[in-house]
Design a protein around this nucleic acid. Structure first.
Lengths: 102, 102
DNA sequence: ACAGAGTACTCTGTTTTTCAGAGTTACACA
DNA sequence: TGTGTAACTCTGAAAAACAGAGTACTCTGT
């Protein structure tokens, strides 16, 4: 039988907001703050705090620039972030047997 | 693009311990307390509290009996619990694109 | 009837996390 | 140098997670 130890699910990714952020970043190569805020529906303070955790963990990197005279921060997954997300998804799949639901 | 609003993920299921419990119950028809505790690795007090939340939500039902002279509580998913879990898994799949990882 | 044993909680208190919103910083451009 | 926009940082409140102690329950043996 599969392993269901709850501690084997990366708690840094297993948060609804952070999971949404990482999922988006895994799909789009890079995304800016406004985009992430709109897609997740989070308030900007809250979103900033969650992204901060992902940056501290080395899962996400940020790049600041100006586009059309306006400040923009672009985020992308680091290789570590990609690996962690992939591991998380695989682990999750083992746990919930997602393939059965499709 | 898919919806990434973090509030669309059932927060009652999206907890590492409760997710483990519900996943197990979705696979085995019923399970007793000891079994759940061993599989999840949770302490019994903590596990009891999480199961309590699932019961209050109507996702899980309990049945007490004695087996080999020892008290046993058997838990199973209610129809509501099954539906909620299935919805959760589908939602999760949309979010993380789990099918890509296999 | 009562004591002992085993299980499944319930309760308590601590730690951690989440969240919203206000306030602040930073930089480009006029 | 002042203004505008975006991206945070900080604060504080609320909720959740967690471990572990303590308790209640019912069976069984005497």
């Amino acid at each position: 039988m599969a392993d269901f130890d709850y501690r084997t699910l990366d708690e840094l990714i297993h948060s609804r907001i952070r999971l949404a952020v990482v999922s988006i970043l895994s799909a789009v190569e890079f995304a800016d703050f406004r985009f992430l805020r709109e897609k997740t529906g989070a308030t900007d303070g809250n979103l900033g705090a969650h992204i901060g955790k992902l940056e501290n963990a080395g899962y996400v990197s940020a790049e600041k620039l100006f586009v059309e005279r306006k400040p923009v921060t672009r985020y992308r997954l680091t290789p570590e972030g990609k690996a962690a997300f992939q591991a998380y998804v695989i682990r999750l799949g083992e746990m919930v047997r997602l393939e059965d639901a499709s």
